[in-house]
Design a protein around this nucleic acid. Structure first.
Length: 987
DNA sequence: GATCCGACAATAC
DNA sequence: GTATTGTCGGATC
């Protein structure tokens, strides 16, 4: 068929919808050279006419034509309202598996609506005459063959970002002009809603844009015009020539528009051109909030919490259990239907049997009875189905979700959408089962929020309402009006954890709780929330949350209490990943005691407000679901957010071991510029002091984590030890003078005790010094580092607080610490700073079960140097061989690493200028650049074969000491940890 | 007196 | 720009 033939035929056609539609469509297929449904798919599984039609009547399908993954297509008779057809398609789109294109036609026109997720919908209208135009015809061809090509370029995210950025600018200028930020916020919400209302047709005839146009010409009249419009929206009525719906909702009450400049209005008119109907309210809220906060403004372009992250909580807590309930209902319904169908077949057999015989009164009665039974059974079935559907719909309508820290309402919005989607699915299902269509009842009243920030609370209300309206329109429902925005109290503006009188806040009874409470480390709480508040808060939760815990834990504890009180069933909250350790973990321990964690993501990146923070997502509550950790089913989830299985014990139960006490320390914390460059130190070393003492008494090489992981920085430190008096210290003239100029004043600003002894490090670590005193060298590891590295330092070197120190000089201890066993243990038992693992002496070292006979308690005595140079501790005879084997492997590892770090050919070794210090390593000039690359982090990043092998040998030696000779190398991580835990608990 | 933390903060590469 | 490591003082035991 040619376009001309097609046009000629359909221009004059007067056929009514149903009879014409299929013919029209088949003609189109011929025109486009596309297969018809019958040619393409004889089963009708993925391309057919009358999708979802009831078998009995053959009509009332979800769509006149449907092609899976391509389009839903609805016909209307000529010059009937095509919008009705579009609404119908929208309504049934979920049942049609949400096709990317929704196409409507009255045979004169074909309108293609795009419906790709996350894009701003597009619309292509084709008239009959357009079919002559190859470009237009191509659009239609794509609809049949390659709908992706019709995907709009503009995503809702991009649109929203643009809108939020420009809108934020306006808000900012208003604030800068001295208006109260609350007023600015309220005003912006009103304007935002007007944009939205105009673009979805609630404000007719571009009323708001027209108003802005007028206002630009008559700037002085603008406030009055806006007041008039807002007031009319508050009550409903007429504004100029237009009839205005009753909007209500508090948004337009007491309208007091702010004065605008001509530039503002120009900006607003530009904004009005955007397609606000497709705005994504969840993104808008976040971005706009940032636009208002000067501290966050530079992050405007940054990412926002994506809905996928939020759904990781909303799905398991809100939606999955409901979906499961509905699935069970459907199963029961299917059983009922099958039963009745079986009865019917039986009855039909009876009737058929009777019909074969000669009709008698008796047999006629039989038939009548059989028929009556059938219809009775069917009526009963219908009743039962209806009851089950109605009950479930009521359950949905009554379902309540609380976000006790709702911010701009993102969680509530997504929960609402999810509930509405599910309700819609149930309604469509019910219709298919022959029940009458019902109107959705789930709405903003299903979601409740608590939010302290007045502005965010207001934003949340608008967010939820825009979400509601968008959903209704996108699913072919009209809005319930009078008023459009119900005055439902969904967002409670108050403190969610404590009342103003210092008592614990209460939360409304709901089904589930979700949210992202604020994160604030215990130290920062004081500064940001104020001392009085923090004090009150801590005393309010005394005995339940310790002072060392993050602010976020108060929400966890409050939510746990709600479950205990029977006021909620399940909870899903976000926290920083540090909830897994330290004082924070206790709140999860309590949760594990009174209820259970059933779904968690232990350590996920979370990009929000531009802050690089890693989070844990935690769901807990009363459910029988199989626990899922990081997306995989497990037997149990422990308080540190690790998995348990049947064989494994909870690692959080590991205890500190006496044999490990007083061996590991954190280095000194200087608090001030006690550090100096090596060159300056050497200069001072040569200079005499008036009392005859040498500066070498108080100058030492210094090491922080970077001196271990990268090239040594040749930094020295002024160290007057733990208790030297000022009158003694001042004899070391230059060092003392240096501190007077660089440290004294800064310290004076600090806390009294810190200010008083300003020439000493704030934490000079006397215990550590005592433990190191007797040793020629010690083991050191960076507290925060990508790899768990241990190195040797001469006793002359002073370790900084960025490192942890193990006061042992033997290679055996070094080897055990550097084995995979301790590495694994420290990764699991330690915490992290962001994504980087952190070594904590108490939880990683003190709990670590060394091999029997080789514990720190056994290795603290005399040592012996082997032929190779390795130093071994003198331990009981039966362990001596293991000590030796480990020491040799460790010695080799260290030596190979040293050779790689400082190849003898590339460097020269020089004695330090005064005695008592280690040799200096001076790069030969031609190798300086290459030596810079020789760092331990780089080495472990590259991980050459020799390194892996050497570590493997070390692992074997240590495994042997544990008595795990058999298959130590094949041991899984979980198996190793379990064995270590058993050892820990046994001691 | 020692430890642990940071909706981080600062550098080195 | 990004990857990696560092600061320091309050709360707690």
């Amino acid at each position: 068929m040619t376009p001309e033939q097609f046009i000629a035929k359909w221009q004059i056609s007067t056929l009514k919808e149903r009879s014409a539609a299929q013919e029209h469509f088949i003609d189109l297929c011929r025109l486009l050279n596309e297969p018809t449904p019958a040619e393409f798919d004889s089963t009708g599984e993925c391309y057919c006419f009358e999708r979802g039609a009831k078998k009995t009547t053959g009509g009332d399908g979800w769509a006149d034509v449907w092609k899976r993954g391509y389009f839903g297509w609805e016909y209307k008779g000529k010059r009937k309202n095509l919008n009705d057809a579009f609404i119908q398609l929208h309504r049934y789109a979920p049942a049609l598996e949400n096709p990317p294109l929704l196409i409507v036609s009255d045979m004169e026109q074909i309108i293609i609506h795009t419906a790709f997720n996350g894009t701003v919908p597009d619309r292509h209208t084709l008239t009959l005459n357009d079919l002559r135009n190859p470009n237009k015809l191509r659009l239609l061809k794509w609809a049949f063959s390659d709908p992706e090509r019709l995907r709009p370029k503009l995503t809702t995210a991009a649109l929203t970002e643009q809108a939020a950025r420009q809108f934020g600018e306006l808000a900012q200028t208003l604030c800068e002009r001295g208006h109260d930020s609350q007023q600015v916020a309220h005003f912006c919400q009103q304007i935002l809603f007007c944009f939205f209302a105009e673009d979805i047709g609630l404000l007719t005839n571009q009323l708001f844009s027209q108003l802005l146009k007028t206002g630009q010409q008559r700037l002085n009249d603008l406030p009055q015009l806006l007041t008039g419009l807002f007031n009319t929206m508050a009550t409903g009525g007429s504004f100029g020539m237009e009839k205005i719906d009753w909007f209500n909702g508090g948004l337009f009450d007491a309208a007091k528009p702010l004065p605008l400049t001509r530039t503002d209005v120009t900006l607003l008119r530009e904004l009005a051109r955007l397609n606000w109907s497709a705005i994504e309210p969840s993104i808008f809220g976040t971005l706009f909030e940032r636009g208002l906060d000067p501290n966050q403004r530079e992050q405007l372009g940054a990412h926002y919490t994506d809905s996928a992250s939020i759904m990781r909580l909303v799905n398991p807590v809100v939606l999955d259990p409901l979906r499961e309930e509905w699935r069970l209902q459907q199963e029961t319904i299917k059983e009922l239907v099958d039963n009745v169908a079986a009865q019917n077949i039986k009855a039909e057999k009876v009737i058929a049997a009777v019909n074969k015989t000669i009709l008698t009164t008796e047999s006629a009665k039989k038939v009548v009875k059989a028929r009556a039974d059938v219809s009775k059974a069917e009526a009963k079935l219908k009743q039962q189905i209806e009851k089950r559907c109605r009950n479930f719909l009521n359950r949905l309508a009554e379902f309540r979700v609380l976000d006790p820290a709702c911010g701009s309402g993102n969680f509530l919005l997504l929960a609402l959408r999810g509930l509405k989607d599910l309700e819609h699915e149930v309604i469509l299902n019910a219709e298919r089962l022959g029940l009458p269509a019902s109107f959705p009842k789930v709405g903003p009243e299903n979601v409740l929020g608590i939010e302290l920030n007045v502005y965010a609370a207001e934003l949340a209300r608008v967010t939820v309402w825009i979400g509601e309206i968008q959903w209704m329109l996108n699913h072919g429902f009209s809005l319930s009006k009078n008023p459009i925005l119900k005055t439902i109290h969904i967002i409670d503006q108050r403190d969610a954890i404590m009342n103003t009188d210092g008592t614990e806040a209460t939360w409304p009874k709901v089904d589930v709780i979700v949210g992202n409470p604020p994160f604030l480390g215990d130290k920062r709480m004081l500064g940001i929330l104020g001392e009085a508040y923090v004090k009150q808060l801590r005393s309010c939760y005394r005995g339940r949350i310790s002072g060392g815990a993050d602010l976020v834990t108060y929400w966890f504890e409050r939510a746990r209490a709600e479950i205990e009180l029977g006021k909620a069933n399940a909870v899903g909250l976000v926290s920083t990943n540090s909830i897994r350790g330290g004082a924070n973990r206790n709140v999860l321990k309590r949760i594990c005691e009174t209820t259970r964690i059933f779904n968690a993501w232990s350590d996920e990146p979370w990009i929000n407000s531009g802050a690089a923070v890693r989070v844990s997502l935690i769901c807990f509550g009363n459910t029988k679901l199989t626990p899922i950790l990081n997306g995989e089913e497990v037997t149990a989830i422990y308080a540190d957010l690790t998995a348990g299985d049947d064989t494994k014990v909870d690692l959080t139960t590991a205890k500190s071991l006496i044999e490990n006490i007083d061996v590991a320390f954190i280095g000194t914390q200087k608090s001030g510029s006690f550090d100096i460059a090596g060159e300056l130190a050497r200069q001072w070393l040569k200079e005499p002091n008036s009392n005859g003492r040498l500066n070498s008494d108080v100058l030492r090489p210094w090491a922080n984590g970077m001196d271990i992981t990268r090239r040594p920085s040749d930094t020295w430190i002024i160290d007057f030890g733990t208790e030297m008096k000022k009158q003694d210290a001042c004899f070391y003239e230059q060092p003392f003078l240096h501190l007077e100029t660089h440290v004294k004043t800064k310290r004076t600003d600090s806390h009294e005790t810190i200010a008083a002894k300003w020439w000493l490090h704030t934490r000079s670590r006397p215990d550590m010094r005592q433990a190191l005193n007797k040793l020629p060298r010690y083991i050191c590891t960076p507290r925060v580092s990508k790899y768990r590295l241990f190195v040797w330092f001469s006793i002359a070197v002073l370790p900084d607080s960025a490192t942890a120190v193990i006061a042992r000089a033997d290679d055996t201890t070094f080897g055990i610490l550097h084995s995979q066993f301790h590495e694994l243990w420290s990764l699991r038992m330690g915490t992290s700073l962001g994504a980087t693992p952190r070594y904590t002496p108490t939880t990683t070292f003190e709990t670590f079960p060394f091999p029997i006979g080789l514990t720190p308690a056994n290795t603290g005595g005399a040592t012996e140097t082997l032929k190779s140079g390795a130093i071994i501790p003198i331990v009981a005879a039966e362990y001596q061989d293991h000590a030796k084997a480990i020491a040799e492997a460790a010695f080799q590892l260290n030596q190979l690493r040293e050779n790689w770090l400082n190849p003898p050919e590339w460097i020269e070794r020089q004695p330090e200028i005064v005695a008592g210090y280690s040799e200096r390593i001076i790069p030969k000039p031609e190798y300086t650049a290459r030596l810079k690359q020789r760092t331990l982090t780089n080495l472990y990043n590259e991980r050459p074969k020799w390194l892996t092998n050497t570590h493997q040998q070390l692992n074997c030696a240590v495994a042997a000491a544990y008595g795990w000779n058999d298959d130590a190398i094949q041991l899984s991580e979980a198996e190793i940890l379990q064995r270590l835990l058993v050892l820990n608990l046994a001691r």
